[in-house]
């Protein structure tokens, strides 16, 4: 039931209750629940248990919410357990229908699943990409992973741009990024700072913020600024700041774009996000239908990019994944 409807027909009652206080209002909490079942005329019902990566978790809940608005009788239990924890403790023992993962399933995990007769079906649902941005007026177009590490590592003393690369201006660095509460921050540490032989920690002398908007603003406003943020937010602000091409050590910098992120060329700052339905669960109509629904909506800018902040699938990839899913469903049915 939509919030507006509820508000309209409960307004007068709410105001009466307001006098009794919030506690009193809580009293009537249960009253409307019976009117819940939005009959949409289909017979899909059952429970879908999902566990796994906390990175994919917001996407999974967004999809399930959307799915539930069409199929009110299907119940969801969604847990954020980490990709590996999800496989080891929930999916492979056969307790969940889907496992989300921010990396592909590992061999040992497949082995564990096979031991329990659980067969995972790999579906790519989105791409997570980070973009390193600088001011439009700064005369730099690409950066290597090593240079990024040097700038953002707490262990390395870096004052000016020229400390990193002598071709760069002798100006002090000004850094913007997501706060340490964000998943983007963790991913940056994992892919840049922990990627080398030595593990660096993220420096704390930068402007950390919860709001992507502030990062863009900060970099836009200062010529010597650098920042990083999720690709989805950058893509809607392309004219305000400049994205750096990333050189992962092979001497060929790659520009961030939907194509390079999807194709996997844009390393190490992009990674595909997966969900793994169990083949045996796909025999159940509601599970199969939800998997289809997820893939059909995986290209949606609104659901994937705006609400969760990931790069949606391309049309071709979507078709490929759908084909894989249909094949698995058919295979499971026999």
């Amino acid at each position: 039931m939509s919030r507006d409807d509820v508000e309209r027909d409960t307004r007068t009652r709410r105001q009466v209750l307001a006098g009794v206080g919030a506690a009193g209002a809580a009293a009537l909490a249960g009253c409307q629940s019976t009117g819940d079942g939005e009959g949409s005329g289909d017979e899909l019902s059952g429970t879908i248990d999902i566990a796994g990566s906390s990175t994919v978790f917001p996407l999974a809940t967004a999809m399930s919410e959307e799915f539930k608005s069409e199929h009110g009788e299907v119940e969801f239990n969604i847990q954020s357990t980490g990709s590996g924890g999800g496989f080891a403790n929930h999916f492979c023992p056969g307790n969940t229908d889907f496992n989300n993962a921010s990396r592909a399933i590992r061999e040992q995990e497949e082995q564990q699943c096979a031991d329990n007769d659980v067969e995972p079906v790999e579906l790519t649902v989105a791409t997570d990409a980070l973009t390193v941005i600088v001011n439009n007026d700064l005369d730099i177009d690409s950066i290597t992973v090593g240079e990024l590490r040097q700038i953002w590592a707490a262990e390395v003393e870096t004052e000016t741009w020229s400390d990193v690369n002598s071709d760069w201006p002798d100006e002090p660095l000004e850094l913007y990024g997501p706060s340490d509460a964000s998943g983007t921050y963790d991913y940056f540490i994992e892919s840049i700072l922990h990627a080398g032989d030595e593990e660096y920690s993220h420096l704390s002398g930068y402007s950390g913020t919860e709001q992507d908007r502030t990062i863009i603003q900060g970099v836009e406003g200062s010529e010597n600024a650098m920042g990083y943020l999720g690709y989805a937010y950058y893509s809607t602000n392309k004219d305000r700041v400049k994205a750096l091409a990333i050189d992962d050590g092979d001497g060929e910098p790659v520009e961030p774009s939907l194509e390079t992120a999807r194709s996997g060329e844009y390393t190490p700052l992009s990674r595909p996000l997966f969900t793994y339905p169990a083949k045996s669960s796909l025999t159940e109509e509601h599970v199969a239908e939800f998997a289809r629904f997820w893939l059909e909506n995986a290209t949606s800018e609104e659901l994937v990019a705006e609400s969760v902040g990931y790069v949606p699938l391309g049309e071709d990839d979507q078709q490929e994944q759908l084909d894989a899913l249909e094949a698995a469903i058919e295979d499971a049915g026999n």
């Binding site: 009794v20 506690a23 009193g24 809580a26 009293a27 009537l28 909490a29 249960g30 009253c31 629940s33 019976t34």
Partner: peptide, 14 residues
């Protein structure tokens, strides 16, 4: 009791 009646109503309704 108003608060807990909400909880009780929830149990019987759902």
């Amino acid at each position: 009791s108003l608060m807990f009646s909400g909880g009780a109503a929830m149990i019987f309704a759902d």
